[in-house]
């Protein structure tokens, strides 16, 4: 029983990271109906930025926030330069551009920071906490991801800008008619998604170590989480992310073993698409014609 509780709690801890990446994916999906295949790669790049800032002697949290800010700017820039021209293009085009972005970010990461696996520091102590159920890092990173998720929620729910961003995602035409600069809202959404990814990268890197392909598996779990919760529901994506974390941990411990965890994500994706394509909290999905 104790082992089981341990697995659940540590599943929630990793689930928080999936939840934030899933949220980043859903934010862009809601606004553009595109899925950013490069989300994971962008987060990895951000994590390297943090490491670089730490290595030049900045304190951890300064480096962390610096990287979040830089990632935000990079996200905005990518939207303005790359995504704007293909905003209304067919799916093949957008997938092509996103995969292209994935490859370029991955290469640039490898080229700038080389391909060797690096250790990444955690700002939290490694001591077990909560009666040994969680390491200090797991507890701390769960706290950080929760803080991020809650602030994102508050931002969207209770600020003018957040409201305008939601409006732009739901109904761009009407948004323009009340004076919302829709183009900039999309760019801000990209920036925010990149910033969230940056946090997720920094929280996961101490556990899995840092290399240019660090996030490819995490992206898969985030996909699974987003689909499970409903790809057009931010709240659903967050819950889905946590659920995938728990399922992954329990499945890894009791069912398939740790070597098949990625396959578990695949199974979740296929099951959701087969059994309940709209996810747990999403609206019904219609294929666009």
């Amino acid at each position: 029983m104790e082992g089981f509780i341990h697995q659940v709690i540590s599943g929630i801890a990793t689930g928080g990271i999936y939840a934030s990446v899933a949220l980043a994916l859903v934010m862009i999906y809601q606004a553009t109906h595109h899925v950013n295949f490069a989300q994971g790669e962008m987060a990895t790049f951000s994590t390297y930025i943090t490491l670089t800032l730490i290595n030049i002697g900045l304190p951890y949290w300064v480096a962390f926030l610096g990287a979040v800010a830089i990632s935000f700017v990079i996200g905005v820039a990518i939207e303005r330069l790359l995504m704007r021209p293909v905003a209304n293009a067919p799916v093949l085009t957008s997938v092509g551009v996103f995969v292209g972005l994935l490859l370029i970010v991955n290469s640039v990461t490898g080229w700038m920071f080389d391909y060797t696996i690096k250790q990444f520091p955690s700002p939290f102590s490694g001591k077990p906490m909560l009666g040994g159920f969680l390491s200090g890092h797991e507890l701390g990173s769960t706290g950080v991801t929760l803080a991020v998720l809650i602030s994102v929620y508050l931002f969207f729910k209770h600020t003018r800008l957040g409201l305008a961003m939601r409006a732009a995602a739901f109904n761009p035409v009407s948004s323009r008619l009340v004076g919302v600069r829709v183009g900039w809202m999309l760019a801000l959404g990209w920036g925010l998604a990149a910033a969230i990814g940056s946090v997720a990268g920094c929280m996961v890197a101490p556990i899995v170590f840092l290399d240019p392909n660090m996030m490819s598996g995490i992206l898969l779990y985030a996909f699974a989480g987003a689909l499970l919760g409903g790809i057009d529901s931010p709240l659903g994506a967050v819950l889905g992310g946590f659920m995938v974390g728990v399922i992954e941990n329990l499945g890894g411990a009791y069912v398939v073993g740790t070597e098949l965890k990625l396959t578990l994500a695949l199974i979740i994706i296929i099951s959701v698409l087969t059994l309940k394509p709209s996810g747990l909290m999403g609206r019904k999905v219609y294929s666009r014609v």
């Binding site: 092509g96 551009v97 972005l101 490859l103 970010v105 991955n106 490898g110």
Partner: peptide, 22 residues
């Protein structure tokens, strides 16, 4: 080592920009 991926990525994006409708 990074070049093949970068080349692929650039090719993809360039193709998509030149032929946004495929």
């Amino acid at each position: 080592k990074a070049a093949p991926g970068a080349v692929y990525g650039v090719i993809l994006i360039v193709m998509m920009f030149l032929m946004p409708k495929g």
